[in-house]
Computed example of a mutant assay.
Amino acid sequence: MIPWVQLDSAKIPDGGELRLKRRGAEFSIMLGTNELMNSRLSGSEEALAKLSCDRIRGRKEPHLLIGGLGMGFTLRAALAELSDDARVTVAELAPAVVAWARGPMAEIFDGSLDDPRVTIRETDVSGLIRSGAARYDAILLDVDNGPEGLSRKANDALYDRAGLSAARTALRPGGLLAVWSSGPDAGFTRRLRDAGFSVEEIRTRANGRRGARHVIWIAINTAR
C-alpha cells in the first residue's frame, strides 16, 4: 500500500493544527488524529450545494455564501448548478487551506477558484453573516463537524440562538440556511425552528450510496 506523506501543516485560530496529507492521488486534511475531509468522499458536501441550489433556482442574480472552502466539493457543485449571473462568496478562516487549493490540490479544484462568479474571503464566515441584512439568497455552512464543534470552539456561535438569528437576518425573504453535519442533532433542529425557520432534515451518504451517513438541514427563511 502507498504510504501517506504529509505535505504541509498550519496552525488554526484558537489552537490546533491542520495537516495536509497525500497518498497517491488521494488527499486528506487532518486535525490531530481526526480526519476532517478526504478527496475520495465528496457526496454529502456536493449534496449540500445541490439541495440548496435546487431551492433557489430561477432567482435573478442569486448570491450564495459558503462557510468553509475545504476541498472545494461544495463550491464546485454549486458552480455547476448556478446561472451565469450568480455570485458565490466563500469564507475560509485558514489561509493555508486556500494556499493548498491553489497549490498541491489545484487539480482537484479544477480552476473553480478562478471562476468569475467566485470571491474568496480569508475570514470568519460569522463576520460576513453579520455584515448586513438581506444580503444572501443562501448561506451554506460546512464549518467544523457541524453544530457540535470539533476543531474550534468559537464555531459553536454559528449554531446557537444568536448565530441563527443573525443568519436569518442576513438572508433575503425565502432564502435558506443549509448546514452540513457528520450526524443528527435534535437540539439544533429545535433551535432552527425556534429561530423562525421552516426546517427539513435530510440524511445523505458520504460517498453516493456508500459511506457514513451525514445530515443536511435545509432551513427556509419564511419572513416576507
Rank of each mutant, 00 (worst) to 15 (best):
M105R: 08
D110G: 12
P104R: 14
D115P: 13
A106M: 05
S83V: 05
A86K: 01
D115Y: 14
T119Q: 14
G72H: 06
T74D: 05
L82F: 01
S112T: 05
D85G: 14
P104S: 10
S83R: 05
G103T: 04
E81C: 07
L79A: 06
D115H: 08
D115C: 11
P116R: 02
D85H: 02
V118D: 05
E81N: 01
R76F: 11
W100C: 08
M105Q: 13
A80C: 05
T89E: 09
T89N: 02
V98L: 07
R117S: 09
T89D: 11
A86T: 05
G103W: 11
E92K: 02
A99H: 10
A99D: 14
P116F: 00
E92P: 01
A106C: 06
F109A: 07
A101P: 14
T74K: 04
A99K: 14
T89R: 04
M105Y: 10
R121F: 03
R87P: 00
W100I: 13
D84L: 13
A80H: 10
R87N: 01
L75P: 00
M105S: 13
G111W: 04
T89V: 09
I108K: 15
P95T: 07
P104T: 12
D84C: 08
P104M: 10
G103Y: 07
D115G: 11
S112I: 05
M105C: 15
G72W: 06
M105E: 11
I120L: 15
L79Y: 06
V88M: 02
W100D: 09
D114A: 15
R117V: 09
R87H: 03
G103V: 10
L79M: 09
D110E: 15
P116C: 02
E122V: 15
D110Y: 03
